[in-house]
Design a binder for these strands. Structure first.
Lengths: 355, 355
DNA sequence: TTGTATGCGTTATCAG
DNA sequence: CTGATAACGCATACAA
């Protein structure tokens, strides 16, 4: 790997000149500039980003922390963030935050954050308050933080409006007995987790949509379930076994799933039990992961516009990075902002019925 | 962020003492050790990995480069690699390599490689030969490299054996007219891409299995198709429209898909056209991504053991890293090794039929 | 047993 | 317009 010094030697100038020229400082003779650029080209020179961040505190890399690398929703977001970052001349690295809370929290902060100018956190089991201790003053954008007193900038999905739209849609295709699958049971260890918070938003959206139709959401229609293919498949089995779905007078004829993973698992679970979707029970998910368009039946969902999501997240993050680096003694920090991503209702086979 | 110096000050020793103590050097008084450790603890000290790799050339981070962040197979591998790395006390960062070949090749080498001790490459559109120019002497393991003269250590899926097992399975459930979907058309720009190479292995496996049954694989039964949900869905439409599947005497009654993404897309495509899987055409994929177990019908596949894959990849990489750092004048480099991951045949509904 | 000095590759300050 | 020089935070040979 060629270094600054190698380039300098070859161009017959000093290392500092190379550094300036390569970063576009205008005050050099065209001749010098050309010589330096050619030397850099010939040697295939690229700045060492570790050295750069060490010295300058910036290197143009954005860290993206996701809950799981093999889970569709966060990775779809990570892909959108990477696309958007690339367009802005930034790079991204992705790290996983799952596993032991303590250990991963630490590794996250001590690995990812050191390599980059700023961080974007996709929802995990740790809350913003917890992470705060581990983060230096690194600029940071949190995804799906609905805390009343936000600690960081955030981008959120329209959880309330999306859930409301989903349930309205279920009602509009003729469902009357609507249940919710995938509500997270409150966890004793960290009751205030981000996950719970946006679950509550989605529940509130459901409740509102039902209220509009003069219906309520009894608590036994809110079914807890981990956000996982297998768990949701088994949850569907339990609904079928209990006789709550299917038959002439089912207790549930429409199911709002908290996310698409749950919807896919449930759909498969119903198929196992001979419950037909949408004929016996209509199904709608949340997120808009690509896979929902290719299942049988295809699954209706609240399709988040991840391009828009990524754009907003990077707007926020870049602004923080800029203001962190600017020497303007504007020590007064801007208060955390919260932006909401766009969404559309994707109507697919799983809600295709007229009653 | 607390630095080494902060800890030293607090513990009343020199920075170098802190460095030694924290990394477990035994030659210090218990008293000193305790003082240093407590100071580090209190300050929440963590070594700056950029500084560490700059100075020492190692920081315990492994880079994983994948073709796409939102594609199931590479992410399942990345997740397995991360799990395995964590168990060995290593961290991983993931970067995407897709997009413009030139640009991404460069960003890959100039971002990911600088932060870590070694790299693991999941298949992309660039060949090992091409990457070689961009890589310094960074230890590297390539996934799915079937080149005759390998340039790097590699782990590969059992492409030949897997395809063979898949086609044998199709034959064993009564298929007689087997086609292959997802063979990549040769690309003029880089004919020797890694992708083409392992496609060929899989084709050879099919051919062999058919030959065992006295059958051949005519070239019009090898159907090119990008590895993408939508493209494979449309490919299925074309097969149905051409009357090659379905009906009393179909030209194709069993389909080996080059990977699970293609299998899922095709399965959906057949559903669009009223072609029943497996009754009209049996279907089997390759990779064993989690989603195939939850589609309707569930899709049989060659399930790669990604835990085994990850273990082998890290064994190779760690060995290279060790030998690169060891000062032993063992300048003679070990020749590239190639390890094969285990697999199992997952029999699911898409091949469940008796003829 | 501990501390000092040096350098990894870069950027920023300041002098020339 | 250009070039020394000093950090950034850490690891390590070597001196004490």
């Amino acid at each position: 790997m060629a270094t600054l010094r190698d380039v300098a030697e070859r161009a017959g100038v000093s290392p500092s000149t190379v550094s300036y020229v390569l970063r576009g400082d205008p005050r050099f003779q065209p001749d010098t500039v050309a010589r330096v650029q050619r030397a850099a080209e010939e040697l295939g020179y690229a700045a060492n980003l570790s050295a750069r961040i060490l010295k300058a505190g910036r290197n143009g890399v954005i860290g993206v922390a996701v809950y799981g690398l093999a889970i569709c929703q966060p990775m779809q977001l990570a892909a959108a963030l990477t696309r958007e970052a690339t367009e802005r001349g930034l790079n991204t690295i992705v790290q996983q935050t799952v596993n032991s809370r303590e250990g991963e929290l630490r590794s996250l902060e001590q690995v990812t954050s050191q390599f980059c100018d700023g961080l974007i956190f996709s929802p995990s089991s740790v809350s913003p308050a917890e992470i705060k201790a581990f983060v230096g003053s690194k600029p940071m954008v949190w995804c799906e933080d609905f805390a009343a007193e936000p600690l960081f900038d955030a981008v959120v999905t329209p959880s309330f409006e999306g859930a409301q739209a989903a349930v309205r849609h279920l009602l509009s295709v003729g469902c009357h007995r609507i249940a919710v699958l995938g509500a997270n049971p409150p966890r004793p260890d960290h009751a205030d987790s981000s996950n719970t918070a946006f679950c509550n938003q989605r529940l509130a959206g459901c409740t509102m949509a039902l209220a509009e139709a003069g219906l309520s959401l009894p608590s036994d229609s809110v079914i807890p379930c981990p956000w996982d293919y297998e768990d949701s498949r088994l949850a569907a089995h339990r609904l079928a076994d209990a006789g709550l779905v299917g038959g002439d007078n089912p207790a549930i004829d429409g199911l709002f799933c908290m996310n698409d993973t749950v919807a896919m698992g449930a759909s498969r679970g119903f198929a196992d039990c001979g419950i037909r979707v949408p004929d016996d029970v209509a199904l709608i998910g949340f997120d808009g992961i690509a896979e929902t368009a290719y299942t049988v039946p295809s699954i209706s969902t609240i399709a988040i516009d991840y391009g828009d999501y990524a754009r907003k997240a990077l707007d926020l993050l870049v602004a923080r990075i800029e203001s962190a680096t600017s020497k303007g003694a504007a020590t007064l920090v801007a208060p955390p902002q919260r932006l909401v991503a766009n969404f559309t209702l994707a109507q697919r086979e799983s809600t295709h019925l007229v009653r």
